[in-house]
Design a binder for these strands. Structure first.
Length: 521
RNA sequence: GCUCCUGUAGCUCAAUGGUUAGAGCAGGGCACUCAUAAUGCCUUGGUUGUCGGUUCGAGUCCGGCCGGGAGCACCA
């Protein structure tokens, strides 16, 4: 099976990352880790979009070169991803020379094939914003508002991509490939946007207006503008045209393409990814079988401005990670939203998810299990010979969860996959209250039963630690450390079976993995 | 304006046209003491936005109205 190639949108290096950036990367990272755990080879690409006018202007304002400026902002991203445990294989920075070479080679190819042409455009131009204005920019009275400053008539030559040549193909492709976009209802938006007259895509800016970009190889008076630069990262850093461009240190393109998942936000589906990106690939000669799959996620809405009072700036992922640990934040970000839909970020909810589900549920289960095992058996456990309905039920819950979990995860229903794993936690806590091992310990005649109960708890927890490891890699490693069980490097989901802990297994000491967070109201 | 989605418990959401519309959280009560004031059990709570239609039967299908949201290609 080909490696699982997963990408995220590359973030614009104009400002530091916020919770939305973090969510997308966590979502992709969870899927990448899940696929690795499933035994699939994975290539996970993420990165930053460093060119463009906003960067050029911000750098001028800051009195530094554009490269110095983007290097600074880029560090905010890389350090945030390190904090959050985002484990990517490839880093796509659009100022990377390997990327520039591919963009130029690609543009040259399209130029040679007659897919690009030059024409003059006359329209309303905002001097202050340095951009042409469309009717959408007009205010309700039909004029351009004061925010645009002086608006003049301007004629300018630019290069265009024959996007309209590929629209009919795209419509047919979307209709015949229901899996192209997840969730599928988004495809309607694309088809709706494709109704009406198709127009071509402007892909350049004169160097006088924009110089912070990649020059067109066949016309150096122009710089490439946005899409053929930013979107191309998915293939340039995947090894596309690597031989021809002399690029090294990249994957074998034929081996990893097409992307199994291009994780993007709903704001950049139409038109960039669903229309520009797809027609670009088609123009380059990619076949239907070589088209990527788009995973479109929703947004975290910040409802009301008052939620950050007691937490400080709540939308800064680093602050949240400090309060709830990186894994606590990762858990919340994929637990409290359904992929493709929006959710409201709420301080109350993240506090609840952390304290109740992780602290009171999973963490406390581990802690009470380890304390009892250490108090009654010096931490040494044995399955023993005792069995009853309660024990069987625990094993059944584990088996059911492990059957449902990969189905949910593969279908991008991460929150439901998590729910499956948490069912084991709930069942184990009920199992303790039912069997009352702390009472069994006082009765020597119940020794065999106590052995069975303790073993079932520790074994079930081991399984949970594997299932949740894509979501909370560090916390699950800590849980496994306390359980005295080291997950083998090559351990896969398919290796999960009852009896991971050997007879006589020595458990470690328990320390709260998710210490309770107290927040003053 | 055009296209599409949506309205179910305080909140977030489930319910191939078929028993008495379910679950989690929040709220209330009880139990327990191994554990991070943790856990378990029980429980209150709904005229399914509204009006009409189709049907033996409608949360589900159709239409109107009211409310919420999304998208509509040379904006990054």
């Amino acid at each position: 099976m080909k490696p699982y190639y997963i990408t995220t949108a590359i973030d614009y290096t104009n400002a530091a990352p916020h919770i939305g950036h973090a969510y997308e990367k966590v979502l992709a990272d969870v899927m990448a880790r899940f696929q690795r755990l499933s035994g699939r080879e994975v290539y996970f690409l993420t990165g930053v979009d460093q060119h463009g006018q906003k960067v050029q202007k911000s750098a001028e304002k800051a009195g530094v070169t554009p490269q110095e400026f983007v290097d600074g902002i880029t560090q905010h991203f890389t350090s945030a991803w390190e904090t959050l445990g985002i484990k990517f294989d490839g880093w796509a920075a659009t100022t990377d020379n390997r990327h520039k070479r591919v963009v130029q080679a690609m543009l040259q190819k399209l130029h040679d094939n007659g897919q690009l042409y030059k024409k003059a455009h006359k329209g309303h131009y905002s001097v202050r914003q340095e951009q042409f204005l469309t009717d959408k920019e007009r205010s309700s009275d039909g004029n351009f508002g004061p925010e645009w400053g002086e608006v003049i008539e301007l004629e300018e030559e630019n290069w265009y991509f024959r996007l309209s040549d590929h629209v009919e193909w795209l419509k047919g492709y979307i209709r015949s490939h229901p899996d192209f976009i997840y969730p599928p209802h988004r495809a309607n938006d694309v088809l709706n946007a494709l109704e009406g007259k198709a127009t071509d895509l402007c892909i350049s800016r004169p160097v006088e207006r924009l110089n912070w970009g990649i020059p067109l190889p066949f016309d150096p008076r122009f710089v490439n503008y946005v899409w053929f630069d930013a979107l191309t990262n998915y293939i340039s850093f995947g090894g596309y045209l690597a031989d021809e461009c002399g690029n090294e240190g990249l994957p074998k393109f034929d081996a990893i393409w097409p992307a199994d998942a291009q994780v993007i936000g709903k704001d950049i589906l139409v038109p960039p990814h669903a229309i520009y990106w797809m027609t670009m690939l088609h123009a380059l000669g990619f076949t239907d079988e070589q088209m990527p799959r788009l995973i479109v996620h929703g947004w975290w809405n910040i409802s009301g401005a008052k939620i950050s009072k007691s937490l400080g700036n709540v939308i800064d992922p680093k602050v949240l990670a400090q309060t709830f640990t990186a894994d606590g934040l990762r858990f919340y970000l994929v637990r409290d939203i359904a992929t493709g839909y929006d959710s409201d970020f709420s301080e109350e909810r993240i506090l609840m998810a952390y304290n109740k589900e992780l602290g009171g549920g999973l963490g406390n289960l581990l802690n009470r299990t380890l304390k009892m095992a250490n108090n009654y058996r010096q931490g040494k456990i044995s399955p023993g010979s005792f069995d009853d309905e309660a024990c069987q039920n625990v094993r059944q819950v584990v088996a059911d969860a492990e059957a449902a979990y990969p189905v949910r995860m593969n279908g991008w229903e991460i929150h439901l996959g998590i729910e499956e794993a948490m069912k084991i936690v709930t069942a184990c806590n009920a199992f303790i209250d039912l069997t009352q091992p702390f009472k069994l310990a006082k009765d020597e005649a119940q020794a065999a039963r106590l052995d069975a109960v303790l073993y079932h708890l520790a074994e079930a927890l081991t399984h949970v630690s594997v299932l949740l490891s894509p979501v909370m890699p560090r916390a699950c490693a800590e849980i496994q450390k306390q359980l005295g069980w080291l997950q083998p490097e090559a351990f896969r989901l398919g290796d999960l079976r009852w009896g991971l802990l050997a007879d006589g297994h020595q458990l470690g000491q328990g320390t709260p993995v998710f210490p309770r967070v107290e927040i003053a109201a």
